[in-house]
Design a protein around this nucleic acid. Structure first.
Length: 277
DNA sequence: ACGAGCGCCTGTCGGC
DNA sequence: TGCCGACAGGCGCTCG
């Protein structure tokens, strides 16, 4: 499910708390309950249960699409992949069919990792830098400049869309925000990365930051039954708008498959250049 | 280096 | 109604 803005929304929710949910920082984990073995990527279950017990949540960070619960002496990294969800509920509530990991807290609540499709993963690690070493730059980071993006684009012959989805190239973009950013920048998803001009790279850089920032401002996108609370789906320009008119030029939005991912774009605003083949 | 295919999973939807 | 394929916000792997 979530891309960077949805994970950031979870981070803020759990860091700051809300009217109906307390903040997580300061809570102590009494015990963990693993309901689907493969959800736990590392370490082995026995070590996991032993190590996580009695650790206190000290801070919550995000890196790309990873949510990082900083504990007393480890980090619990959570990746929600396609259908993962996180929420608090009363410790004695019945266990839902899609609950995969429960963390029982000292305030009587439990933090639930729920995941219909079972693709999500959690890691308990004391070497979080090693775990995240494969990730590219943080697109909203202050040190990520248009020139950095341009330099990286020039070294790649790949098509721009699969490249933006590559977490080693840039951390946090997923299918929705990539389609939206390419449309905002007026760049065809099959353009070769190293064919972009400096001006196009600058447009892309600001489009990426704009759609991600707007996604965060709208608390993410809610689609289907997964993820609730966000409303960025009401502001999509191309994603899941196949056949509907482009808001800029009224041309029907097209859907193609690029790198095995459904891809939505406006054939007029995102002109197909010769290098697209 | 790149792209395609597939595995991992469950659920929904549209067509026949 | 029931079945069957396509599709879904992700990513790691192999192979050519």
């Amino acid at each position: 499910m979530p891309e960077l803005p949805e994970v950031e929304t979870f981070r803020r929710k759990f860091l700051w708390g809300s009217e109906d949910e307390p903040a997580l920082v300061g809570k102590r984990i009494l015990e963990a309950d693993l309901l689907w073995a493969r959800t736990l990527a590392e370490p082995d279950p026995t070590s996991f249960f032993h190590r996580i017990k009695d650790q206190t949540i000290t801070d919550i960070d995000r890196r790309g699409k990873y949510l990082l619960l900083r504990l007393s002496s480890d980090v619990l990294a959570i990746h929600l992949r396609m259908s993962g969800d996180l929420f608090l509920e009363a410790g004695g509530a019945p266990v839902g069919v899609h609950h995969r990991l429960l963390l029982n807290l000292d305030d009587g609540n439990r933090l639930v990792f729920s995941d219909t499709r079972k693709f999500g993963r959690v890691w308990l690690s004391d070497d979080i830098d090693g775990l995240l070493a494969h990730l590219g730059p943080e697109p909203l980071g202050e040190d990520f400049r248009a020139k950095d993006l341009y330099d990286r684009l020039l070294r790649r012959a790949r098509r721009i869309k699969p490249l933006l989805l590559d977490q080693g190239f840039l951390a946090g973009m997923g299918n929705i925000y990539t389609d939206e950013a390419l449309h905002l920048a007026g760049i065809h998803p099959e353009r070769k990365a190293n064919s972009l001009s400096w001006e196009e790279a600058q447009s892309l850089w600001s489009a990426i930051r704009e759609v991600l920032a707007e996604g965060i401002r709208r608390n993410g996108s809610s689609i289907d039954w997964v993820y609730r609370g966000g409303d960025f789906q009401n502001y999509f320009q191309v994603y899941q708008r196949t056949g509907e008119p482009c808001y800029r030029c009224r041309t029907p939005i097209e859907r193609i498959v690029v790198g095995q991912r459904g891809t939505h774009f406006c054939p007029v605003c995102q002109e197909r250049n010769p290098d697209c083949r």
